[in-house]
């Protein structure tokens, strides 16, 4: 039986590598110390809060509606994070929330509709977190890269517009490159599954005593759903960002102030 207990000494030991990272940052003058400490503290606080919320949600007799409310909160928070990372894209918050909500709805619909997992709080919250969390990384990258590409390549984009291209045509080569950057991490990690790392759901099921072949099938379903969710949300937000960064009359909006 797996013992899930970790005492203060165990937790402190796990911080050793963070200490190493801090030492590297200091010795190399990377100035990442503040961010490292902030991320470590914030993650701890968030996980503790999450632990209490999960405990509350998992109490016997608690309705699954509360879990869905929690997933909705995750979607809104993820949308806000995307907006904060690429604030120059107008309307990004709403766009990200709709894309994340839609992909979460579809993936969770498949998981619970086909009975991959029973629709219980202990499945809804972590699976929702996996879908939203993975999609969040891709979506942030997509929005950020699209904004950066169009800012850096402004002269090329405007040269294309000046040749009579529509904003869609003029932005296409740069959006393509941005989307590749956004999707590559998920594609690479999907390719490395089984060879480099054993993903969480499968590991958890095997540790819980489920037949490894069944665990693999469940993991495959989840992995494909994550890949699909990341790809669709990134594409929707990436292409949506392009639309927002051009005006309807095919002009590239001023993202940074240009001279004369």
């Amino acid at each position: 039986m797996l013992e899930g207990d970790v005492d203060a000494i165990g937790l402190a030991t796990s911080l050793i590598l963070v200490g190493v990272a801090l030492a590297v940052s200091l010795s190399q003058q990377l100035r990442l110390e503040k961010q490292l400490i902030w991320a470590t503290v914030r993650a701890f606080v968030q996980l503790v809060v999450m632990g209490f919320v999960l405990a509350w949600l998992l109490e016997p007799g608690r309705g699954v509606a509360y879990s869905w409310v929690w997933v909705a909160c995750m979607v809104v928070f993820a949308g806000w994070t995307v907006h904060k990372r690429a604030p120059e894209v107008p309307g990004l918050f709403g766009m990200a929330v709709v894309a994340l909500a839609a992909s979460t709805l579809v993936t969770m619909g498949v998981i619970f509709g086909f009975g991959v997992f029973p629709m219980e709080a202990r499945a809804i919250v972590p699976l929702g977190g996996m879908m939203i969390g993975n999609s969040l990384s891709g979506t942030v990258l997509a929005a950020r890269r699209v904004a950066d590409e169009l800012t850096e390549k402004r002269p090329e984009v405007e040269a294309r517009l000046a040749l009579g291209h529509s904003s869609q045509q003029a932005g296409r080569p740069y959006v393509r490159s941005a989307m590749r950057t956004a999707l590559t991490p998920q594609i690479e990690s999907t390719k490395a599954v089984g060879l480099v790392f054993l993903p969480g759901a499968m590991t958890g099921l095997i540790l819980a005593g489920v037949d490894p072949v069944d665990a693999v099938l469940v993991q495959a379903a989840i992995m494909y759903l994550i890949l699909g969710a990341v790809a669709t949300t990134s594409l929707v937000v990436g292409l949506g960002s392009v639309r927002q960064l051009f005006t309807p009359d095919h002009r590239l909006r001023r993202l940074t102030r240009s001279s004369d």
Partner: peptide, 15 residues
Amino acid sequence: DPQQLRRRVGMVFQR
């Protein structure tokens, strides 16, 4: 129409 206008009025940029 902006696209047609830009084909009628071509532009060569500074760089």
